[in-house]
């Protein structure tokens, strides 16, 4: 069995975001990057499946982006993936979801993966398009927003998370693609021995030009902070002072404090 896991590296979401020089995406200076949280669930599910099948499946990680994404790849390898592909693209942030999916599909086409795991979305762009578009390009059936996953004899049974806590149970045959939702599993922390072992694993580099044949369907026009709608009070400064001011406001504006 061959498994592909797609991994994106994204900034820490507690960062302060500022527009880049072109004003269309965030500037990368001062940002700390990490593995997209949804993709950690995708990696973990692939490793769990490998363990379930006695270590037989080979797990390939793929990440599209500039050289910094090698750090995300290393984490995935330390979590238990076997090898990795870095599609090197210093301008990945300007590609639209359709182009990113086309790049991944162009690589996956010749590899005959049985299962592909992706996150359901990225924390920075959050298009929720890439996984599904990869499946469409490859002609794979696909289930999105998966919070439970089972595999037996070429059949995948998943629970999709719907609104209001309801789940939809769906079955599909491999080859297939699933997009992983938060809470699917408990992503492991790489152990020191596994981090050391990961350093010896193969990472092949492919320049993006070799895989991308599609024109963009979206143009990024602007990146900015949302207009402040709420006229809420912001309390800053010393904690004791904040406590007094909050209690004053609650007494004034609500009936909950007597």
């Amino acid at each position: 069995m061959k498994i592909l896991v797609c991994v994106k590296q994204v900034p820490d979401m507690e960062s302060r975001f500022r527009p880049d020089a072109a004003g269309v995406w965030y500037a990368e200076t001062d940002l700390a990057f990490r593995v997209n949280e949804y993709d950690e669930y995708a990696i973990e599910q692939a490793v769990l499946l490998k363990e379930q099948l006695g270590g037989e499946p080979e797990i390939t990680l793929l990440s599209v982006g500039p050289d910094r994404v090698v750090e995300a790849i290393k984490k995935g390898l330390a979590m238990g993936a076997d090898r990795a592909v870095h599609v090197r693209d210093p301008e990945a942030h300007l590609k639209d979801p359709f182009q990113i999916a086309s790049i991944i599909a162009a690589y996956a086409k010749g590899e005959a993966f049985d299962l592909i795991f992706t996150g359901m979305q990225s924390l920075d762009r959050g298009s929720t398009q890439v996984g599904v578009a990869v499946a469409e390009a490859l002609g794979y059936p696909c289930a999105t927003t998966v919070v439970a996953f089972e595999y037996a004899d070429g059949t995948v049974t998943v629970k999709r998370e719907l609104e209001g806590g309801v789940k939809g149970v769906v079955r599909l045959k491999t080859p297939a693609l699933v997009t992983c939702q938060l809470g699917l599993n408990q992503p492991r922390y790489p152990t020191l021995p596994n981090i050391m072992k990961a350093k010896k694993k193969e990472v092949s580099v492919i320049p993006v030009e070799q895989l991308l044949q599609q024109e963009a369907r979206l143009v990024l026009a602007q990146f900015s902070a949302p207009a402040k709608k709420g006229g809420g009070v912001v309390l800053e400064g010393d904690v004791a002072d904040q406590v007094d001011r909050l209690i004053g406001i609650l007494k004034d504006k609500t009936a909950v404090l007597r």
């Binding site: 900034p11 979401m13 975001f17 269309v24 995406w25 965030y26 639209d96 979801p97 359709f98 924390l123 920075d124 762009r125 959050g126 298009s127 929720t128 398009q129 369907r217 979206l218 143009v219 990024l220 026009a221 602007q222 990146f223 900015s224 902070a225 949302p226």
Partner: peptide, 26 residues
Amino acid sequence: PQVSEVVALAEGGFERPCCSQKMRQV
């Protein structure tokens, strides 16, 4: 083309959230 999670109309395009709802892009 697909634009996901549109929150508003914008000049010549659509506004949508990004960076976990902290920012907006057109």
